[in-house]
Nucleic acid binder design. Sequence first.
DNA 1: AGGAAAGATTCATATATACGAATATTCATA
DNA 2: TATGAATATTCGTATATATGAATCTTTCCT
Lengths: 106, 106
Amino acid sequence: MDKKIFEMHAEICKVFTNPKRLEIISLLRDGEKTVNDLTELAGVPQANVSQHLTVLRQNNVVTTRRNGANIYYKIANPKILQACDLMREVLLEKLAENEELVKRML
Amino acid sequence: MDKKIFEMHAEICKVFTNPKRLEIISLLRDGEKTVNDLTELAGVPQANVSQHLTVLRQNNVVTTRRNGANIYYKIANPKILQACDLMREVLLEKLAENEELVKRML
DNA sequence: AGGAAAGATTCATATATACGAATATTCATA
DNA sequence: TATGAATATTCGTATATATGAATCTTTCCT
């Protein structure tokens, strides 16, 4: 029944399992950027940025707009950022917990 | 700088890239359940459920409590459910869009 | 038209993941 | 302490993913 939804959900989540893609998403947080912008900001080879952008585009995480030779990428749905933020919070809370644990052991 | 955070974030997200794990998470939504419960509800071989629970446990997505021969699993942090829900909303919105597209083509 | 800049694609390879099958561990109870 | 029920682990294999290198496409400018 819901199985199909779980499969699609899992598929989408694969987009977020690569650190470079997460960095790109983060870089797009406050507005659209060109491939070149992203390449420089992330410090990753252009071809690789492009490969990741393809994945993001195919999964409707970003949308594009062409302006001359440049292509601007932006986040398609703000809820995606919210979801990323929540996961990051979970992560940071866990890190904080572990830090306390370490402190208590000294 | 943030690179390390992005790596950890990506690592955590890997937990959500398997449909069976998402189903298990969904089954735990309204309270703790034993491995047996989950096995029956999901209709997946016990060993496989156990493998997925191991992944969930190792990534602090679930916590466990033993009671006799049974082990109860539950979601560790409600924010995880929130994040899952948000992603599912994004997914459903996209599906709705596509449905409209198809309709307009008839 | 020709060249350069911006971006995308293809391919090969290395690495990770999922799952079934078989086996092991843990606990309760007779 | 032997047995059965509940759960976990290990291993082999098939499949997916990430990345560098090389190549291609599109657009702009002269």
